[in-house]
Protein backbone atom coordinates (compact mmCIF):
# COMPACT_ATOMS: atom_id res chain seq x y z
CA UNK A 1 0.00 0.00 0.00
CA UNK A 2 2.82 2.41 0.82
CA UNK A 3 5.63 3.31 -1.50
CA UNK A 4 8.29 1.76 0.71
CA UNK A 5 10.33 1.08 -2.40
CA UNK A 6 10.07 3.14 -5.52
CA UNK A 7 8.72 0.25 -7.59
CA UNK A 8 5.50 0.41 -5.55
CA UNK A 9 5.08 4.10 -6.11
CA UNK A 10 1.98 5.45 -7.76
CA UNK A 11 3.15 5.75 -11.34
CA UNK A 12 1.99 5.85 -14.91
CA UNK A 13 4.27 2.88 -15.38
CA UNK A 14 3.01 0.74 -12.57
CA UNK A 15 0.95 -2.09 -13.94
CA UNK A 16 -1.20 -4.62 -12.15
CA UNK A 17 0.60 -7.89 -11.63
CA UNK A 18 -0.16 -11.23 -10.09
CA UNK A 19 -0.51 -11.04 -6.29
CA UNK A 20 -1.29 -7.31 -6.21
CA UNK A 21 -3.95 -6.03 -3.87
CA UNK A 22 -6.47 -3.98 -5.84
CA UNK A 23 -9.59 -2.14 -4.76
CA UNK A 24 -12.42 -3.03 -7.11
CA UNK A 25 -14.65 0.01 -7.38
CA UNK A 26 -18.24 -0.50 -8.45
CA UNK A 27 -19.75 2.64 -6.99
CA UNK A 28 -18.58 5.14 -4.42
CA UNK A 29 -20.29 3.04 -1.77
CA UNK A 30 -19.58 -0.41 -3.18
CA UNK A 31 -15.95 -1.45 -3.21
CA UNK A 32 -14.06 -4.62 -2.53
CA UNK A 33 -10.45 -5.58 -1.85
CA UNK A 34 -9.21 -8.30 -4.17
CA UNK A 35 -5.83 -9.97 -4.40
CA UNK A 36 -5.12 -10.58 -8.06
CA UNK A 37 -4.55 -14.22 -8.83
CA UNK A 38 -4.18 -15.29 -12.41
CA UNK A 39 -6.70 -18.14 -12.49
CA UNK A 40 -9.39 -16.41 -10.44
CA UNK A 41 -12.52 -14.58 -11.40
CA UNK A 42 -14.52 -11.88 -9.66
CA UNK A 43 -18.24 -12.25 -9.89
CA UNK A 44 -20.66 -9.46 -9.04
CA UNK A 45 -23.91 -8.12 -10.31
CA UNK A 46 -22.13 -6.68 -13.35
CA UNK A 47 -20.98 -10.10 -14.52
CA UNK A 48 -17.82 -12.16 -14.40
CA UNK A 49 -14.39 -10.52 -14.43
CA UNK A 50 -11.32 -12.63 -15.19
CA UNK A 51 -8.28 -11.59 -13.16
CA UNK A 52 -6.12 -12.59 -16.09
CA UNK A 53 -7.61 -9.68 -18.06
CA UNK A 54 -6.37 -7.30 -15.37
CA UNK A 55 -2.70 -8.29 -15.53
CA UNK A 56 -0.55 -5.67 -17.19
CA UNK A 57 -3.22 -3.00 -17.01
CA UNK A 58 -2.51 0.26 -15.23
CA UNK A 59 -4.16 0.96 -11.89
CA UNK A 60 -7.16 3.19 -12.43
CA UNK A 61 -8.28 1.15 -15.45
CA UNK A 62 -11.89 0.50 -16.29
CA UNK A 63 -12.43 -3.24 -16.76
CA UNK A 64 -15.38 -4.89 -18.46
CA UNK A 65 -17.09 -8.13 -17.58
CA UNK A 66 -18.38 -10.82 -19.90
CA UNK A 67 -21.71 -9.00 -19.87
CA UNK A 68 -20.26 -5.58 -20.63
CA UNK A 69 -20.60 -4.32 -17.06
CA UNK A 70 -17.60 -2.53 -15.67
CA UNK A 71 -15.58 -1.79 -12.56
CA UNK A 72 -12.48 0.29 -11.87
CA UNK A 73 -9.33 -1.18 -10.40
CA UNK A 74 -7.73 1.17 -7.91
CA UNK A 75 -4.45 1.09 -6.05
CA UNK A 76 -5.11 0.64 -2.32
CA UNK A 77 -4.71 3.58 0.07
CA UNK A 78 -5.48 3.68 3.79
CA UNK A 79 -8.67 5.64 2.98
CA UNK A 80 -9.91 3.02 0.52
CA UNK A 81 -8.84 0.26 2.88
CA UNK A 82 -11.00 1.74 5.64
CA UNK A 83 -13.97 1.40 3.29
CA UNK A 84 -13.32 -2.24 2.35
CA UNK A 85 -11.75 -3.91 5.37
CA UNK A 86 -13.66 -6.61 7.16
CA UNK A 87 -15.30 -5.24 10.27
CA UNK A 88 -14.39 -7.37 13.25
CA UNK A 89 -15.18 -4.43 15.52
CA UNK A 90 -16.48 -0.89 15.22
CA UNK A 91 -13.92 1.05 13.26
CA UNK A 92 -12.72 4.63 13.04
CA UNK A 93 -13.46 6.56 9.87
CA UNK A 94 -11.61 9.19 7.94
CA UNK A 95 -12.61 12.31 9.90
CA UNK A 96 -11.58 10.89 13.26
CA UNK A 97 -8.53 9.17 11.80
CA UNK A 98 -7.20 12.29 10.11
CA UNK A 99 -7.72 14.42 13.16
CA UNK A 100 -6.07 11.89 15.46
CA UNK A 101 -2.95 11.65 13.31
CA UNK A 102 -2.63 15.43 13.05
CA UNK A 103 -3.44 16.17 16.67
CA UNK A 104 -1.10 13.52 18.00
CA UNK A 105 1.59 15.19 15.86
CA UNK A 106 2.61 11.90 14.32
CA UNK A 107 5.33 12.28 11.69
CA UNK A 108 7.81 9.90 10.03
CA UNK A 109 10.05 8.26 12.59
CA UNK A 110 7.60 8.34 15.49
CA UNK A 111 7.04 5.40 17.80
CA UNK A 112 3.30 5.02 18.39
CA UNK A 113 1.46 2.72 20.80
CA UNK A 114 -2.15 1.73 20.19
CA UNK A 115 -4.75 -0.34 21.99
CA UNK A 116 -6.99 -2.00 20.96
CA UNK A 117 -6.13 -2.93 17.46
CA UNK A 118 -9.70 -3.75 16.53
CA UNK A 119 -10.02 -4.06 12.77
CA UNK A 120 -6.87 -2.05 12.11
CA UNK A 121 -8.54 0.88 10.38
CA UNK A 122 -6.70 3.58 12.34
CA UNK A 123 -3.55 1.45 12.55
CA UNK A 124 -3.21 1.57 8.77
CA UNK A 125 -3.16 5.37 8.81
CA UNK A 126 -0.81 5.45 11.80
CA UNK A 127 1.57 3.22 9.86
CA UNK A 128 1.45 5.54 6.87
CA UNK A 129 2.25 8.51 9.11
CA UNK A 130 5.27 6.97 10.84
CA UNK A 131 6.76 5.44 7.67
CA UNK A 132 9.44 4.84 6.62
CA UNK A 133 11.48 4.87 9.83
CA UNK A 134 8.93 4.81 12.66
CA UNK A 135 6.88 1.96 14.06
CA UNK A 136 3.41 1.27 15.40
CA UNK A 137 3.03 -1.24 18.23
CA UNK A 138 -0.61 -2.14 18.52
CA UNK A 139 -2.20 -4.38 21.16
CA UNK A 140 -5.45 -6.27 21.40
CA UNK A 141 -6.47 -8.74 24.10
CA UNK A 142 -8.38 -10.84 21.59
CA UNK A 143 -5.97 -13.37 20.15
CA UNK A 144 -7.94 -14.22 17.05
CA UNK A 145 -8.61 -10.59 16.22
CA UNK A 146 -4.94 -9.75 16.68
CA UNK A 147 -4.12 -12.58 14.28
CA UNK A 148 -6.57 -11.34 11.66
CA UNK A 149 -5.18 -7.83 11.98
CA UNK A 150 -1.66 -9.17 11.54
CA UNK A 151 -2.77 -10.95 8.36
CA UNK A 152 -4.33 -7.74 7.09
CA UNK A 153 -1.15 -5.74 7.67
CA UNK A 154 0.79 -8.36 5.71
CA UNK A 155 -1.74 -8.17 2.93
CA UNK A 156 -1.58 -4.39 2.76
CA UNK A 157 2.22 -4.46 2.89
CA UNK A 158 2.52 -2.78 6.29
CA UNK A 159 4.02 -5.75 8.09
CA UNK A 160 7.37 -4.02 8.56
CA UNK A 161 5.77 -0.92 10.12
CA UNK A 162 3.26 -2.52 12.47
CA UNK A 163 3.71 -5.08 15.24
CA UNK A 164 0.57 -6.61 16.71
CA UNK A 165 0.75 -7.86 20.27
CA UNK A 166 -1.81 -9.85 22.24
CA UNK A 167 -2.15 -8.11 25.59
CA UNK A 168 -4.77 -6.75 27.92
CA UNK A 169 -3.61 -3.15 28.16
CA UNK A 170 -6.33 -2.15 30.65
CA UNK A 171 -5.22 -4.94 32.97
CA UNK A 172 -1.48 -5.08 32.43
CA UNK A 173 -0.53 -1.75 30.89
CA UNK A 174 1.87 -1.43 27.97
CA UNK A 175 5.05 -3.53 28.04
CA UNK A 176 7.87 -1.97 30.08
CA UNK A 177 10.26 -2.10 27.14
CA UNK A 178 8.54 1.00 25.71
CA UNK A 179 8.94 3.10 28.86
CA UNK A 180 9.78 6.67 27.90
CA UNK A 181 10.02 5.81 24.20
CA UNK A 182 6.58 6.58 22.79
CA UNK A 183 5.94 9.79 20.87
CA UNK A 184 2.20 9.16 20.94
CA UNK A 185 -0.32 6.77 22.47
CA UNK A 186 -3.82 6.06 21.19
CA UNK A 187 -6.43 4.35 23.36
CA UNK A 188 -9.72 2.92 22.14
CA UNK A 189 -10.73 0.93 25.19
CA UNK A 190 -13.94 0.54 27.19
CA UNK A 191 -12.24 1.78 30.36
CA UNK A 192 -9.41 3.97 29.12
CA UNK A 193 -8.76 5.46 32.56
CA UNK A 194 -7.27 2.12 33.61
CA UNK A 195 -4.60 2.37 30.89
CA UNK A 196 -3.77 6.07 31.25
CA UNK A 197 -1.15 5.70 34.05
CA UNK A 198 0.72 3.18 31.92
CA UNK A 199 0.42 5.43 28.86
CA UNK A 200 1.96 8.26 30.88
CA UNK A 201 4.90 6.01 31.70
CA UNK A 202 5.45 5.09 28.07
CA UNK A 203 5.42 8.62 26.69
CA UNK A 204 8.35 10.88 26.07
CA UNK A 205 8.28 14.30 27.69
CA UNK A 206 5.58 16.43 26.00
CA UNK A 207 4.37 13.29 24.21
CA UNK A 208 0.75 13.15 23.11
CA UNK A 209 -2.13 10.91 24.08
CA UNK A 210 -5.55 10.42 22.55
CA UNK A 211 -8.42 8.46 23.96
CA UNK A 212 -11.43 7.67 21.80
CA UNK A 213 -14.70 6.96 23.64
CA UNK A 214 -18.25 6.86 22.37
CA UNK A 215 -19.76 7.84 25.71
CA UNK A 216 -19.36 11.04 27.68
CA UNK A 217 -19.17 9.15 30.98
CA UNK A 218 -16.01 7.45 29.74
CA UNK A 219 -14.59 10.83 28.82
CA UNK A 220 -15.44 12.22 32.23
CA UNK A 221 -13.59 9.48 34.08
CA UNK A 222 -10.65 9.58 31.69
CA UNK A 223 -10.25 13.32 32.17
CA UNK A 224 -10.19 12.91 35.93
CA UNK A 225 -7.26 10.54 35.67
CA UNK A 226 -5.54 12.48 32.89
CA UNK A 227 -5.10 15.63 34.90
CA UNK A 228 -2.77 13.85 37.31
CA UNK A 229 0.11 13.76 34.86
CA UNK A 230 -1.19 15.33 31.66
CA UNK A 231 -1.86 18.86 30.56
CA UNK A 232 -3.50 20.54 27.57
CA UNK A 233 -6.49 18.22 27.98
CA UNK A 234 -9.02 18.86 25.23
CA UNK A 235 -12.04 16.90 24.10
CA UNK A 236 -13.45 17.11 20.57
CA UNK A 237 -16.07 15.66 18.37
CA UNK A 238 -15.39 15.69 14.64
CA UNK A 239 -17.92 14.83 11.96
CA UNK A 240 -18.16 15.12 8.21
CA UNK A 241 -21.02 16.54 6.25
CA UNK A 242 -21.11 15.42 2.63
CA UNK A 243 -22.74 17.21 -0.27
CA UNK A 244 -24.47 16.04 -3.39
CA UNK A 245 -24.00 17.98 -6.57
CA UNK A 246 -26.53 18.10 -9.35
CA UNK A 247 -27.16 19.99 -12.51
CA UNK A 248 -30.74 21.20 -12.41
CA UNK A 249 -32.80 22.77 -15.14
CA UNK A 250 -34.49 25.86 -13.80
CA UNK A 251 -37.38 27.60 -15.48
CA UNK A 252 -36.62 31.00 -16.81
CA UNK A 253 -39.06 33.65 -15.66
CA UNK A 254 -39.41 34.98 -19.20
CA UNK A 255 -36.77 37.66 -19.12
CA UNK A 256 -34.67 35.44 -21.33
CA UNK A 257 -31.02 36.32 -21.58
CA UNK A 258 -30.94 38.82 -18.78
CA UNK A 259 -30.16 36.25 -16.12
CA UNK A 260 -26.48 35.54 -15.57
CA UNK A 261 -25.48 32.16 -16.85
CA UNK A 262 -23.52 30.42 -14.14
CA UNK A 263 -21.84 27.86 -16.29
CA UNK A 264 -20.55 30.26 -18.89
CA UNK A 265 -16.83 29.96 -18.06
CA UNK A 266 -16.79 26.22 -17.69
CA UNK A 267 -18.93 25.13 -20.58
CA UNK A 268 -17.12 23.31 -23.31
CA UNK A 269 -18.68 25.25 -26.10
CA UNK A 270 -22.26 24.14 -25.60
CA UNK A 271 -25.05 26.56 -26.26
CA UNK A 272 -26.29 27.70 -22.87
CA UNK A 273 -28.49 30.59 -23.81
CA UNK A 274 -31.57 28.49 -24.37
CA UNK A 275 -34.16 28.31 -21.64
CA UNK A 276 -34.59 26.56 -19.23
CA UNK A 277 -31.32 27.51 -17.59
CA UNK A 278 -29.27 24.70 -16.13
CA UNK A 279 -27.28 25.29 -13.05
CA UNK A 280 -24.91 23.19 -10.95
CA UNK A 281 -26.11 23.15 -7.39
CA UNK A 282 -24.98 21.51 -4.18
CA UNK A 283 -26.78 20.55 -1.01
CA UNK A 284 -25.89 18.51 2.05
CA UNK A 285 -26.75 14.83 1.84
CA UNK A 286 -29.84 13.96 3.80
CA UNK A 287 -28.24 11.43 6.09
CA UNK A 288 -25.01 11.55 7.99
CA UNK A 289 -23.30 10.05 10.97
CA UNK A 290 -24.43 12.01 13.99
CA UNK A 291 -21.85 10.67 16.39
CA UNK A 292 -18.78 8.47 16.31
CA UNK A 293 -16.98 9.16 19.54
CA UNK A 294 -15.30 11.81 21.64
CA UNK A 295 -11.62 12.34 21.08
CA UNK A 296 -9.77 13.44 24.20
CA UNK A 297 -6.24 14.69 23.63
CA UNK A 298 -3.62 15.60 26.15
CA UNK A 299 0.09 15.94 26.48
CA UNK A 300 2.43 14.62 29.13
CA UNK A 301 3.22 17.44 31.49
CA UNK A 302 6.82 18.64 31.54
CA UNK A 303 8.36 18.52 34.99
Amino acid sequence: MLASDSARKFSFNRLISNGDLVIVYERHDIMKAVTVSEGSVLQNRYGVFKHSDWLGKPFGSKMFSNKGGFVYLLAPTPELWTLVLSHRTQILYIADISFVVMYLEIVPGCLVLESGTGSGSLTTSLARAVAPTGHVYTFDFHEQRAGSARDDFERTGLGNLVTVGVRDIQGEGFPDEFTGLADAVFLDLPQPWLAIPSAAKMLKQDGTLCSFSPCIEQVQRSCEVLQISFTDIRTFEVLLRTYEVREEKLEDDGSNGSLPCKRKQCSDGGNLISSPISSVMARPCGEAKGHTGYLTFSRLRCL
Binding site: Y25, H28, R234, V238, R241, Y243
Partner: peptide
Protein backbone atom coordinates in the same frame (compact mmCIF):
# COMPACT_ATOMS: atom_id res chain seq x y z
CA UNK B 1 -19.66 18.29 -11.98
CA UNK B 2 -17.14 18.84 -14.76
CA UNK B 3 -14.94 15.99 -13.55
CA UNK B 4 -17.99 13.73 -13.66
CA UNK B 5 -18.95 14.87 -17.14
CA UNK B 6 -15.38 14.42 -18.36
CA UNK B 7 -15.13 10.97 -16.71
CA UNK B 8 -11.78 12.04 -15.32
CA UNK B 9 -12.18 10.81 -11.76
CA UNK B 10 -14.26 8.58 -9.53
CA UNK B 11 -15.10 8.49 -5.85
CA UNK B 12 -15.86 12.20 -6.05
CA UNK B 13 -17.10 13.73 -2.86
CA UNK B 14 -17.48 17.16 -1.36
CA UNK B 15 -17.17 17.13 2.38
CA UNK B 16 -17.23 19.69 5.12
CA UNK B 17 -15.76 18.87 8.50
CA UNK B 18 -17.47 19.90 11.67
CA UNK B 19 -15.46 20.25 14.85
CA UNK B 20 -16.87 20.77 18.31
CA UNK B 21 -14.88 21.11 21.48
CA UNK B 22 -16.19 20.17 24.92
CA UNK B 23 -15.61 21.47 28.38
CA UNK B 24 -15.24 18.37 30.52
Amino acid sequence: HNLQLGKMAIGLQISEPWLREYQV
